[in-house]
Structures are given as C-alpha cells and as structure tokens.
Design a protein around this nucleic acid. Structure first.
Length: 518
DNA sequence: ACGTGGTGCGACTTACACAA
DNA sequence: TTGTGTAAGTCGCACCACGT
C-alpha cells in the first residue's frame, strides 16, 4: 500500500471534525467486512491509531465517548481479528464500564461464539469477573487448549481454580458426559476424545506451565501413578524385560505411602503373581485388613523368608540363560573405571581432550515414571579406544559444590563439545544433552555450539535407507530388537542386553550389571 | 511410564492474478 | 478498485521411533 494512500487517509482525518465517529460510520456502512488480512478498513483503522498518538486530543467528553464505545462493540463482534487491537485502543475500551463489556461478551457467548468471546475477554482483561469453568469448557471441547492456557495465563488464582475443576472431572465417580451434554450441538466438538487420559495430559501441561502445586490435583496424580503401576506389571510379567530387583525398586518409589495406590497394587499382585506375593507386600506396608481382597488376610502372618530366596534364585537363572546371546564390549574389566573423585576425573579429561581424539558419549538417568520435573543425569559415560570412564555425576557435583568449583564440569563439557578436532560419538544424543541441561543449568546452550558430533542414529537412518536387503531374508519372524541394539546386531552380529536400561541409576552403589551395561 | 525429535498430513494464512 | 478464487507457504497436531 502506497505512501500516497496513507497520506490521503491522514488528510481525511484532519478534515473531519470527529475522526472517531467518522471511522465508525465508515465501518458500519459497509456491512460485509469479510475482507480478511490487510483490507482497506484495516489500513484506515491502524492509520487512525497512529494519527491519534501524534495528535493527542484533549480528553473526550465522557458521554460522547460512551456512545462511541457502544457503537464500536457492535463492530467488534463482526470485524476481522486484526482490527480488534486498534479499535480497542482507539476507543479506549479498557476504560469503559466493565459491566457493559461483560454483558456484551456474554451475549457473544450465548450466541455460541465461544472462541470470539474468549478472545475479546482476554483483550479487555475481563477474566477475573468471569466464570472460568463456563468460559473454558466449550473451548476445551473444541480442542482449543491453547486458548484456555492464554485465557488464564496472567491470573494465578484462575489457574488454580481451573486445575481444581479439571481434577474434579477426573474423580472416579464423575461422569464426564455431564460436562459435555449442554454442548452437544457444538461444531467440531470432539466429545469422544474428551476422556480422562487427555484431561490428565492437559492438567500436567498446565501444572508444568504455571508452576501450580500438584497437590491441588490429587485425582490426576493418582491416576498417573496407577498407569505407571500397570506399565511396570506389563514390563515384568508380560514382556518379561525387567528384573525383580529393578521392578521392586520402581514399585516402591511409585506407591510410597499412598494407601489408595497400595490397594490397587495388591489387586494387581493377586492377579499376576498370586496371593502369597500380594500378602508379602501388604505386610510390608501394613495395609489395613479391610482393604485387602477376601481370602488374603489369612495369609498375612505367614513367614516368608523361604519364598523370597526361592524367587531370587529363579530370577538369577533366568538371567544366566539369556546372557550369552548378547554382544559384549571386548574391553577388559579393569579398563572400565568408575570415577567418584575429581582427581580421577581430571586424569580422564586429559585423555579425552587430545587433538584428534574419538570419544563415545552416553548418559543414564532414572526413568521419570510420572515424577514431576525433568530427570537429572546420574551417570555420564565416556569411552576412548580401549578405555571406559563412568562419571558418578551426582557425587562429583556434590563435591564440586562443597569446594566451590561448580564451573568445573560445565567448562569441560563446553570445551569437549565445541572442539571440532575431537569427534563425539553417540546414539540419539539430543536426549542426553537435554537431560544434562536439566542437571547443570550452565549447560543450556551447549546444544547450539557443538562441533565434531556424529550421531549414529542419523547415520543409521541414512545407511539403512540405502541397503534395505538386511531385514526380511533371515527369518519370517520379526526381530524384537530395535534402535541401537538392532544396529549393533547388524554390524557386530549380536544384539545388546538392555535389561538395565530402566533401572534406578540414582541408587548407589551401582550393581555390577549396571556398570557392564553402562 | 514420560520426554523428545522427526515426519506427514490437513487446516489455516498469505499472496497474487484476474474478472467484474 | 474491489472482491474472488486459486496457489503457495506456515503452523499445529497426531503419530512414530527412540532414549531413560
């Protein structure tokens, strides 16, 4: 749009006695303002906004402005979105009578223009005087969670209130249909997608985004932990890829002192591994007798040392039988160093930071399993040609804290990642780095300035695309191996043993199996 | 289980040419 | 000059595959 047009517009304003009324007359007269984007109306309106800034007229007479405001509201409900801000500013709607504005918005709402009502409310900052539940429900049904986020974005009280409402929707006895029924006729309403699963996802997003106390949403938290329990049982008894020890550890930290979860755990135990094991766990927490399924209570006082031993040896045999079929690093055990002091670590760094060095990098952390917050790296592995270093990160960082040398690790990592003459080798390294950033806030921007990094995940993808003849010749049965393990199987003949992948990497001392896996 | 990063598809804008 | 219709570009979302 030419400068000419703008000048012409301005001349027009100067000629009018009351430009504000003039603009309204213009907008009203052309009834169909379907012109999206940069229409003439938009240009004129935004020019007027600038013009007013340059020619601050004295305060308008109150009554006259009120009349104009009444008229502009009629336009607001029809005009394109990009006119909203200029119009609100020009006619100073934020100074208008709130009750009047609220009434107008509620009119929009009753018309079924829920989105428009919400947008206008946000622009006019009307949220504190509105009912969060009423305003947000139709938006949520229309899958507009983002808008809901924005709607409560600046009001912590509304955030808490909204989260509490969402949590009550997740109560076991609550019927979500009660919420959706009034809005049945809603366009693109996805009532069937509106279940507890998506709700709890939303709740966690909001909890994270607004830093609200998770205790406000007990139902959602409980359900999340229950899902974790189900998953752990699946891993242990269906997929059979988790050892008794790792499984028990995760069960323990998921259930904790929560009676409700303890009850569910007992039921799962009865189903998957019999009443004796269930009774043992029930005893362990002192679960009240009336919470137990009938028939289980009698087994409580039973001595259980014998079964325990039995079970552990069974697990051991199960381990041994499988172990030989997996690939193992051809590095003698004495060249695998677990580093727990800075003195040893500095020696390791000296070897790693050689020009031209090639170093393999990987990290381990405790699986999140529904815990809030991002995981912290518990072990940092680095390998050169025939030596492996395992850095006990929690311990080293703690020591550095005491000695006031917090920058030690970040400085090393920066140097390592930015040096193009040192090749960093890994598999799916972006995940490692993001966990590392959560562990050590000084390393947030390491990702941007990295040189000499080779990620075998991407290499694998490219090579795999060129030579697809591997896959279906060997056997009709699909290989369960995937990811790095599959790659190792292709290149080195045998897959990897991933049993320790989901173990508790924060627990010390590390078990020998964990060290070998690392 | 969760978190992340990449991918593909559809919805939604934006840009532009053209007819009225 | 305006509004319309089509083409191109963005954005967002669901999905998958992988990590712990």
């Amino acid at each position: 749009v030419s400068r000419q047009l703008k000048e012409e517009i301005r001349r027009g304003f100067a000629g009018l006695e009351d430009p504000l009324a003039g603009l309204l007359a213009m907008l009203e007269s052309s009834s169909d303002w379907k012109g999206k984007g940069h229409s003439l109306g938009y240009y004129i309106t935004s020019e007027l906004q600038l013009w007013i800034k340059e020619h601050p007229a004295g305060p308008q007479s109150g009554i006259q402005l009120k009349k104009l405001q009444a008229r502009v509201l009629g336009i607001l409900s029809q005009c394109p979105a990009n006119l909203l801000d200029p119009l609100i500013s020009i006619y100073q709607l934020h100074t208008a009578d709130r009750n009047y504005l609220l009434e107008h918005v509620s009119h929009l709402y009753l018309k079924g223009s829920y989105k428009e009502a919400a947008i206008l409310s946000m622009k006019l900052k009307l949220q504190p005087d509105q009912d969060v539940e009423k305003m947000c429900t139709p938006l949520l049904l229309q899958d507009k969670a983002n808008m809901v986020e924005d709607y409560v974005g600046e009001y912590p009280e509304l955030q808490s209130k909204l989260l509490q409402i969402l949590d009550t929707w997740c109560e076991p006895s609550f019927n979500i249909r009660d919420i959706t029924r009034p809005y049945q006729g809603l366009s693109r309403c996805k009532a069937e997608k509106f279940n507890r699963r998506t709700l709890s996802k939303l709740v966690f997003r909001l909890l994270d985004r607004f830093n609200v106390d998770p205790a406000l949403c007990p139902n959602v938290i409980n359900q999340r932990h229950l899902r974790t329990l189900n998953y752990l049982f699946y891993k242990r008894f269906v997929e059979k890829t988790m050892t008794e020890e790792n499984w028990a550890d995760h069960i323990q930290s998921t259930v904790g002192e929560n009676r409700w979860l303890q009850g569910h755990l007992i039921q799962l135990l009865v189903r998957h591994c019999g009443e004796r094991a269930a009774a043992r766990w029930a005893r362990h927490w002192g679960v009240p007798v009336d919470m137990l399924p009938p028939g289980l209570a009698e087994q409580l006082p039973e001595p259980h040392t014998q079964e325990r031993i039995e079970e552990v040896t069974k697990a051991d045999n199960y381990e041994d039988s499988k172990k030989k079929d997996y690939y193992q690093l051809p590095i003698p055990r004495e060249n695998i160093h677990l580093l727990q002091t800075w003195e040893e670590t500095l020696q390791c760094w000296e070897k790693v930071l050689q020009p031209g060095q090639v170093v393999g990098i990987d990290m381990e952390w405790k699986p999140s399993f529904g815990m809030v917050g991002k995981p912290r790296v518990a072990l940092l592995q680095m390998a050169v040609k025939d030596e492996v270093f395992l850095l006990d990160l929690p311990r080293l960082l703690e020591q550095a804290e005491v000695e006031g040398e917090k920058e030690k690790l970040p400085r090393f990592m920066q140097k390592l990642y930015s040096d193009a003459d040192i090749t960093k080798l890994g598999y799916g390294m972006s995940g490692d780095l993001s966990s590392l950033a959560a562990t050590c806030s000084a390393l947030k921007d390491t990702e941007k300035q990295q040189h000499g990094v080779v990620d075998l995940l991407t290499v694998d993808k490219q090579v795999d695309g060129l030579s697809p003849e591997h896959s279906h010749e060997e056997r009709g049965a699909r290989q369960p191996e995937k990811g790095l393990s599959l790659l190792v199987q292709h290149v080195l003949g045998k897959p990897l043993d991933k049993t320790e992948q989901l173990s508790n990497w924060e627990k010390r001392p590390l078990r020998e199996e964990q060290i070998l896996y690392a």
